[in-house]
C-alpha cells in the first residue's frame, strides 16, 4: 500500500495514491462499524489526545468514537479549560501533552499551519482537525469517500462547491483532493467570498448559481462562517438565500442523480431549503457516518511503521 506518512497535516502534500489508500482502508473500517461488535484491537495501548484549541463538537466526537473503535485511549483537551488562559504557549502545551506519552495528537487550531508547526518538534503523530481557513483534511477525505461510494469513481465528475469558499478550510481541502483525483470543480458564491484566485487551483469560478449547477454530479454546500468574517462580506442572509440558496427548482438544473452534501452544521432555509436537506438526494447524515470510518483509517495509517520494515 502506498501510505508512508507520519502525519496527516493537509491534502495538498498527499499523492492521489495516498488519498486512495485512505479511502480503501476506510471502506473496510466502515464494514467494522456495521458489525454487532464495532471495536477492533488495532490501536490497543495507544494514547491519543484530542487537542482542540478552537471549539468543535462534531469533529471532536467523531475522532473520539474513531479512536475508541480502534481500542485506543483518547483524552480530550479543550483550550478554554486549559493553561492558554494562563499564558502558556502552544509549543509548551503540546510538549506537555507529549510528555503524557501521547502517540497521536489531533489538533484543531484557529491559526493556519499550527499542526505543521507541532509536527516539526513533536515525536508524536499529528493529525490536523482543521487549522484556520487553511485545511481540514479528514473532512475532505470523508467527502470524497462519500462521493466515491455514491458515484463509484471521482475522475471526470462535476463537483460544485457553493458558499463561503474564502474562509473555508473544507473547501480548500476538497479542492486539493478533487483536483488530484481528476474531478472538475466549480466554485460559486458571492464574489466577495469566492475570489478569482481559486482559478489557479484549477477550478472554475462563477457567480451565477444556475451556471454552477448545470450538469453537476455533486453539490457541496458550505455554511456561511459568521465567526470568521471580520466585516460584512454580503448584504444579508435574505439576499444570500435569494441568490445562492439551494431550492428544488434550482436542483432541477443538476444531473437527475446529483447528490447534495454539507459538512454541517446546516442552516435550514439559508443555504438549503429545509425539505431538500431531508430529501433522498441529501447524503448529509451518511457523511457523518463515513466520517468515523475515514478518521479510523487516518488514525490507523499514521500509526504504522515504515514500509521499509516489511
Amino acid at each position: 500500500m502506498s501510505w508512508n506518512q507520519k502525519h496527516l497535516l493537509d491534502i495538498e502534500s498527499l499523492s492521489a495514491e495516498e488519498i486512495a489508500a485512505v479511502l480503501d482502508t476506510a471502506r473496510e473500517f466502515k464494514a467494522v462499524g456495521e458489525r454487532a461488535i464495532k471495536k477492533v484491537p488495532a490501536l490497543q495501548g495507544k494514547t491519543i489526545v484530542n487537542f482542540f484549541v478552537e471549539p468543535s463538537t462534531r469533529t471532536r466526537v467523531s475522532f473520539e468514537l474513531s479512536a475508541k473503535r480502534l481500542s485506543a485511549d483518547i483524552i480530550n483537551f479543550a483550550a478554554d479549560a486549559s493553561s492558554f488562559q494562563k499564558g502558556e504557549s502552544l509549543k509548551d502545551t503540546a510538549r506537555n501533552l507529549e510528555a503524557l506519552n501521547a502517540d497521536v495528537i489531533i489538533i484543531r487550531h484557529k491559526a493556519p499551519g499550527a499542526p505543521h508547526f507541532l509536527a516539526r518538534f513533536l515525536d508524536s503523530h499529528v493529525i490536523n482537525a482543521g487549522d484556520g481557513a487553511h485545511e481540514h483534511p479528514t473532512q475532505a477525505l470523508l467527502d470524497i469517500f462519500t462521493i466515491r461510494e455514491k458515484k463509484t469513481h471521482i475522475k471526470g465528475l462535476n463537483v460544485t462547491i457553493l458558499g463561503d469558499i474564502l474562509y473555508s478550510r473544507v473547501a480548500r481541502s476538497n479542492i486539493w483532493a478533487l483536483r488530484k483525483l481528476g474531478a472538475n470543480v466549480t466554485l460559486c458564491g458571492p464574489s466577495t467570498l469566492v475570489p478569482r484566485v481559486f482559478e489557479e487551483m484549477g477550478c472554475r469560478v462563477t457567480y451565477n448559481l444556475d451556471e454552477a449547477l448545470a450538469g453537476a454530479d455533486v453539490i457541496n454546500l458550505l455554511r456561511i462562517q459568521h465567526e470568521r468574517q471580520r466585516k460584512t462580506m454580503f448584504p444579508g442572509i435574505g439576499e444570500y438565500t435569494r441568490h445562492f440558496g439551494l431550492t428544488r427548482a434550482r436542483l432541477a438544473l443538476t444531473k437527475p442523480d446529483a447528490i447534495i452534501m454539507h459538512p454541517g452544521p446546516i442552516n435550514r432555509g439559508v443555504e438549503i431549503e429545509s425539505e431538500l436537506a431531508d430529501g433522498n438526494r441529501a447524503v448529509i447524515l451518511e457523511q457523518v457516518t463515513n466520517g468515523i470510518a475515514v478518521r479510523m483509517a487516518a488514525l490507523y495509517l499514521v500509526n504504522g511503521g515504515s514500509n521499509d520494515s516489511l
Binding site: 489508500a21 482502508t25 473496510e28 490507523y300 500509526n303
Partner: peptide
C-alpha cells in the same frame, strides 16, 4: 477473514492493506 486489525506487530510495520471480511 482479514487478520490485519488484530495483528500483534502493528506498531513495527506499515499498516497492511485491509481486505474484506
Amino acid at each position: 477473514v482479514e487478520p490485519g486489525l488484530h495483528r500483534d506487530d502493528l506498531s513495527n510495520r506499515a499498516m497492511s492493506k485491509l481486505l474484506p471480511t
